[in-house]
């Protein structure tokens, strides 16, 4: 089996990690200091702050 044929999770360890950070902003600096590319999402609770509606929208792929 070649590396390309393996499931993605088995390839992760051999690949360069690039991160999207959603939440605590402090993690961004730590990653950048270690030379890791990271994009920080300017996050706000979705669905007007209603957790159940946010979960439903995520399940629907919205």
């Amino acid at each position: 089996m070649t590396d390309q044929d393996r499931p993605q999770y088995q390839q992760l360890l051999a690949r360069k990690v690039e991160v999207v950070n959603v939440g605590l902003e402090g993690f961004v600096k730590d990653l950048r200091d270690c030379g890791i590319d990271v994009v920080h999402v300017d996050w706000k609770p979705s669905a007007g702050g209603d957790p159940q509606m946010a979960a439903l929208l995520a399940k629907l792929g919205v």
């Binding site: 990690v17 690039e18 991160v19 950070n21 959603v22 939440g23 957790p51 995520a58």
Partner: peptide, 24 residues
């Protein structure tokens, strides 16, 4: 914008975390 991104680090409040993980 950055298709090379391969991992999401999620630390939002617990009530919203599953929704963000599902999006990722």
């Amino acid at each position: 914008a950055r298709p090379e991104i391969n991992l999401a680090l999620i630390s939002v409040p617990g009530e919203f975390a599953a929704a963000e993980a599902r999006k990722a």
